[in-house]
Amino acid sequence: MDAAEAPTQMPTRPLIDICGVAKTYSGGTHALQGIDLAVRQGEFLSLLGPSGCGKSTLLRLIAGLGEPSAGRIEWPSATYDAAGRPERSLGFVFQEPTLMPWATVFDNVFLPLRLAGQRRRAVALRVEEAIAQVGLGGFARAYPRQLSGGMRMRVSIARALVMHPKVLLMDEPFAALDEITRMRLNDDLLRLWQAGHWTVIFVTHSVYESAFLSSRIAVMGARPGRIAELIEVPAPYPRDEAFRTSAEYNEYCRRTSAALRATLPDAGALP
């Protein structure tokens, strides 16, 4: 697929087609309303918004964890299984590392393969490879509690990548980490994404993070949760330290920030 070579280029068929999706919880909360979004093959898409705008809800719906109250989420290029569900081929990274504390790094990364019925011996190399990919070579036998927060998050990413997914869904994965760790993980994530040719949907509440990482930003507003604006960030990859300090990056941050501010009900009262 040539779209993978040029992530920011628009292919004819979207990878995921989200049409008029709404989600209302049984309590009557309108978490999402009228969401239309076409996720492109190979792009790095951020869902940016304040808390309560439904960005995590949207991500979970895309993952198939819950059904939308209205509208539909289609995977035009996916094959469908016997039950008529799309075979989504996705990895999910939660806000917390969400590792099994009783299992070693190896066993945690092995989990998706194990659930798919693979034997440990047959996929050991593949698991080791995924662990090395996120820079944790040599830690396969460590237990999660022996690792730092950043390293645990790396294990979580390795677990998502071990299945070679087409789409990586990330729900504020670095929000709980310190600034320095987060910057390093951002760099490494971009490197992996460029090498791996997959698509990323990345939920964040940080303007700076989204502008640095994304090829496109969906700015969301709250009450009801909606997509307010789509901002293209056509700056070329690889993006590095030079980009982080450039005037161009600054300009994207400013525009994104303005779009985010416009979604808030009382723009003047922003702290």
Binding site: L65, T98, L115
Partner: peptide, 17 residues
Amino acid sequence: DHNLRDLFVLYGAGAGQ
């Protein structure tokens, strides 16, 4: 853990697993 439970759902784990 709720997220771990979701993860098992995502990867299609059976009740026995």
